[in-house]
Amino acid sequence: MANRLAAVIALIPVFWTLTQGADVTESEVSSLAGVSVKLTCAIGQGCPDVHSMRWYKNEERVFVLSPRANISRAENSLVSRAVLDFKKGASDAYLVIDKVELRDEGLYKCDITYIAITDRCNAVNYINFTTLVKPENITVYDGDVIIPEGKYDRVFTEDDDVTLTCIGGRGKPVPSVQWWKDGVLYNANTAIEERDESGVGTGTNRLKFQVTRADLNVKYECRVYHPALDNYISSSTQLEVNVRPNRLVLSGVEHHVVQGTTVLLKCEVFGARPPANVKWFNATMLLAPEQNSTRLNELPERRPLTKLIDNQTTFASYSNEGDGTY
C-alpha cells in the first residue's frame, strides 16, 4: 500500500509561482486607440519550462496559457481581440491586442508559473498601459469669430481689450494648450480642461490683454502639445493695430523773422499708424492746401509711419497776424 501511494505521489507534478524573492519587472506602454499593441512579459534566459502564464487587466483575467494542456485563450474584455506570442525557451512572451479600445487601459499583470523552482527568472511583470487619442486640429477665436491662420482682418486700436481663445482638438489625455508671443511662452493666460468619462477631452487656453504699441508686428501663436504628436501643432496670427502719434517736432524758425519774407515751417509727426492727419492753422484759421506739401517717409510694412508737412508762408500775406501761432 505504501509503495502504491508513493507511486501516485511521484506522478503529481509540482509547479511554482514565485512572487516572494523572484524578480518583478515594471514598464510603461502607451498606444493610440484603433491600432495593435504588443505588451511584453519578460521571462529571462535559461529558465525552466513555463507551466502556465496568466494575464490580468486590473483584477480581470484576460488571457491564459498552458502549453502542456494546449491552452492559449483570450478571455473577458479581450475575447477575439488578443493572441499570445509565446515560444518555448524564449526570453520574452508578448500579449498582442488588436484594435485597441479606450477601455483597454489599465494595469496589466503577467503571472508566470514554472515547472521547477527558480529564483533566476521573472515571475511577475507589471505593465501600465495607457490608451491615447491624438488631437487632430486647433481653433483660435476672437470672441465668437474664428481667426484664420496668418493675418487677421480685424483692425484693433491702441487700448482695445482683446480676448483670444485657443481650443485644442479632442484628445486623450487632454492636450496641453499654450500661448506664445514672438517665440516666448506667455504666462498671463487661463487654461481649462474638459473631459468625458473615457478621459477624452479638449484643452482651452484664453488670453486676455489690452492692445498697445508693443503689439505691432507681434506674432501670437497657440501651440498644442500631446504625447501622441511627434511635434506640437500650432496656429499663429498678427494683429492689425492702429496707434496714436507719440512725438511731434516743430522746426523752421529759431529766431525772429522779418515781415514780408518767406519762411519754411516743418511739422514732423512720429509713431502713428495709419499716418497722422496734420493740418496747419494760423491762430484759428486753417491755411490753404496749396500752402502745404506732404511727404510720408517709407518704413517697413505695418510699422508706425511719420507724416511730414512743410509749410511755406509769406508773412506779408498776413500782415496783421504775422506773429500768430501755427
Rank of each mutant, 00 (worst) to 15 (best):
C222T: 06
F270N: 10
W280T: 05
F270A: 11
L296K: 13
S251Q: 10
P300Q: 04
V243M: 07
N277Y: 06
E240I: 11
V278S: 01
F270T: 12
Y232L: 07
V257T: 09
S293R: 12
V241K: 04
E221N: 03
H226G: 00
P289Q: 07
F281N: 03
Q291D: 07
L296C: 05
P289D: 15
D215M: 11
L229Q: 01
A214T: 06
S234V: 03
R295E: 00
N246S: 15
L265I: 14
A276D: 07
L248G: 02
L287Q: 04
K208L: 13
L287A: 06
R273A: 08
T237C: 13
N277K: 11
R244W: 09
L250G: 11
T212Q: 15
K279Y: 10
T212H: 06
E221T: 09
E298S: 10
K208S: 15
K219V: 11
P275H: 14
L207M: 15
N277V: 12
A228F: 07
T261R: 11
P275N: 13
N277G: 04
P274K: 04
N242Q: 06
V218K: 14
K266G: 02
E301T: 14
Y225R: 03
H226W: 00
Y225E: 11
V241F: 04
V257P: 00
C267L: 10
L250A: 14
F209M: 01
Y220K: 01
I233V: 15
K266S: 11
T262Q: 10
L239N: 13
G260S: 08
L265C: 06
V253K: 08
N246Y: 10
A283M: 13
R223D: 02
P274S: 05
T261A: 05
G260V: 03
Q291K: 08
N292Y: 00
L299Y: 12
V241W: 04
V224G: 00
T294H: 13
D230Y: 05
L286M: 13
N277F: 05
E254W: 06
L287E: 05
P275C: 08
N297S: 03
A272W: 02
L264V: 10
V269N: 01
V224Q: 01
R223E: 07
S235T: 05
R295G: 00
K279G: 02
E254T: 15
V211R: 09
F270Y: 15
E298H: 10
F270S: 12
Y225N: 05
R223M: 07
L248F: 11
T262M: 09
T212M: 09
E268V: 12
V241R: 03
V224W: 01
F270I: 05
E240G: 10
